[in-house]
């Protein structure tokens, strides 16, 4: 087994509904979707966010899109115009989730490592 960051396995987008942020996580490679289903449990996601998410974490599966949708309740300091947060509408909560580290089989790690990051520019 090896450790990779979720950012190399999946891309994501987040948005808001009141004080709830949603994060949609999409596997780059459909082969990795089952791994996401197994590892990205609501408990694990709740643990990852720690004090950033005050309420419950709900998870929904979209196997048709190789995607998981998370609802993070009470995460936006009241949300909308109430919130004092820089990210009051949870626009980049997605990236906070993508920091998560996952233990994956070596062959998966080898295949995905660096996938989610901009390739280093060639020095000229």
């Amino acid at each position: 087994m090896a450790t990779v960051q979720l950012v190399d396995l999946a891309h994501a987008r987040s948005g808001d509904k009141g004080d709830t942020a949603n994060v949609g996580v999409i596997a780059y490679d459909p082969r990795d979707y089952p791994l996401l289903v197994e590892r990205l449990t609501p408990q694990r996601v709740k643990e990852h966010f720690g004090p950033l998410v005050k309420g419950a974490v709900e998870r929904f599966e979209l196997p048709n899109l190789h995607a998981l949708n998370f609802l993070l309740h009470n995460a936006l300091d009241g949300g909308g115009t109430v919130s004092l947060m820089n990210d009051a509408q949870g626009k980049v909560f997605s990236t906070a989730l993508l920091r998560m580290e996952l233990e994956v089989p070596d062959e998966v790690a080898e295949r995905v490592r660096g996938r989610g990051r901009r390739p280093a520019r060639e020095e000229t």
Partner: peptide, 16 residues
């Protein structure tokens, strides 16, 4: 597929 899927999951609740 990626650009469209990202928009589909945007501001999503229970997808069903």
């Amino acid at each position: 597929r990626a650009t469209v899927t990202e928009q589909i999951v945007y501001e999503m609740g229970d997808p069903t």
